[in-house]
């Protein structure tokens, strides 16, 4: 079975470590905050200028001056700090954020990522995604492995305009966890009940399959 959105978030959450500063993109990455493992502390960075993002407010707590990068009303966690946008991106560009999780349309064997623009369709903009992929050392891309029509999104070379070049090393899809190195995808784990063959068939870029590919585990 392909992973649900929640399961993707749960698997990403296993990569969190105690004391991590983490930037979560919009969509599935946002859900990761719901699955922070017990006993560890992480602090969420929201690129509009908040380190220490808390949960959504109650009706009584809503504050128009306090939103996240998805423009949703939020609260501040204990120990939060507020800063301007240049300071926020100094954290990101300066490599101070420990883990970045974001979505993509395509990734390729050279670690290129396309995530912000489909030519001919509506172009909304890259927001902070180009800064995040260029600035972070530790990035996990979450995406579906293939389109609804069965076309692979893990490619020999991205076809869409790039968000970043040679910057992605880890990809979690609904079917598999993969590493990108030496110009190839390397299969690390498979979703429960998904066969290696199925993953191989839906991976257009060169894929290295080790002798044993463990199934993902969920607590």
């Amino acid at each position: 079975m392909a992973l649900s959105r929640e399961q993707i978030a749960q698997r990403v959450a296993q990569e969190l470590k105690d004391g991590y500063y983490v930037n979560l993109g919009i969509g599935i990455p946002t859900l990761v905050a719901n699955y922070v493992p017990k006993g560890i502390e992480v602090m969420l960075q929201s690129e509009n200028g908040l380190l220490g993002m808390g949960q959504f407010p109650t009706e009584a707590e809503i504050d128009a001056d306090l939103i996240n990068a998805g423009k949703q009303t939020v609260t501040m966690a204990k120990g939060a700090s507020i800063f301007d946008s240049a300071e926020s991106f100094a954290m990101i560009r300066g490599g101070h954020v420990d883990l970045t999780v974001l979505g993509a349309f395509e990734v390729d064997v050279n670690g290129n990522i396309a995530s912000y623009m489909i030519p001919g369709k509506l172009i909304k903009g890259m927001g902070g995604a180009m800064d995040l992929v260029a600035g972070a050392e530790n990035i996990i891309v979450t995406m579906t492995h293939a389109s609804k029509h069965g076309e692979s999104k893990l490619l020999p070379a991205c076809t869409l305009p790039l968000t970043g070049k040679n910057c992605i090393k880890k990809v979690l899809t609904d079917l598999a966890l993969l590493e990108i190195k030496h110009g190839k995808f390397h299969l690390l784990e498979r979703a429960p009940g998904v066969s290696v063959e199925e993953i191989a068939n839906l991976t257009a870029g060169e894929l290295i399959i080790p002798a044993h590919v463990p199934e993902m585990r969920f607590a």
Partner: peptide, 10 residues
Amino acid sequence: RIEQRTIRQA
């Protein structure tokens, strides 16, 4: 004005 009014139940 608030663009995305997201709340949790108290």
